[in-house]
Amino acid sequence: MFEARLTQGALLKRLLDSVKELVTDANFDCSETGISLQAMDNSHVALVSLSLRAEGFNPYRCDRGFSLGVNLNSLNKIMKCAGNEDVITLKADDSSADSLCLLFENSSNERVSEYELKLMDIDQEHLSIPETDYDATVMMPSAEFQRICRDLMVVSESVTIDVSKDEIKFTAEGELGTGNVKLKPTSTIDKPEESITIELGQTVSLQFSLKYLSNFTRGTPLSDQVMLCLSDNMPLLVEYKMDIGYIRYYLAPKVGD
């Protein structure tokens, strides 16, 4: 028996929003410790990894590990039937899970709706993501990162990210001209959500597709801060941390032939 009840149901809507543009079908891997998802986009240059800890749910019950194969488009349609303030409970039979039950309860518990989503068999390759000591780790307000991606898309479909110890610089060059945004580290003790920090082992300069980066910024509502981790010849890591877990996006850099 699998059961996971999330008092903050809106979080599940936001999580789905942050994944569904990148991936259409995905396995939710359920275990004693929580729920996780790992999936690549169609072109296999981007990967999303989601982890939700069991402690974030109340209650959480999972007797044995199993996977829920979900079409995210269909799940999204059903999730639209949940109110923003609703408590959401996910239920499935772990021995023969051919459907996922979703229960939406309003705060006063007067309205309860129940939906069953048909599950599918998804054969997905699972990659083991290595622990990496990144050359540069940057924390910045997530809304700022979203704005930079949106703004620079006006100029080009690619962005070069340069990180040095006193600056992170985003540069775009296109047919109409060029644009860049530079941010300096700031520490605002009273407003940690607005701070920018740079941890640097060595300077990096890498180029990425803005289409993907702006897709990743769908995670913005999940966290005030975003973490960017860069290393030469490694996929960029973009992480949004939540109380209940994290969503991580990886993107392969554009490299010369």
């Binding site: 690549m40 072109s43 296999h44 240059v45 981007a46 990967l47 390759e125 990659l127 083991s128 993501i129 290595p130 690619s158 180029q207 597709s209 490694m234 996929p235 990886y250 392969a252 850099p253 554009k254 490299v255 010369g256 032939d257």
Partner: peptide
């Protein structure tokens, strides 16, 4: 000309 490797080429 720039190209992108797949994620699997980095993480196997």
């Amino acid at each position: 000309k720039l190209k992108q490797k797949t994620i699997a080429e980095y993480f196997s």
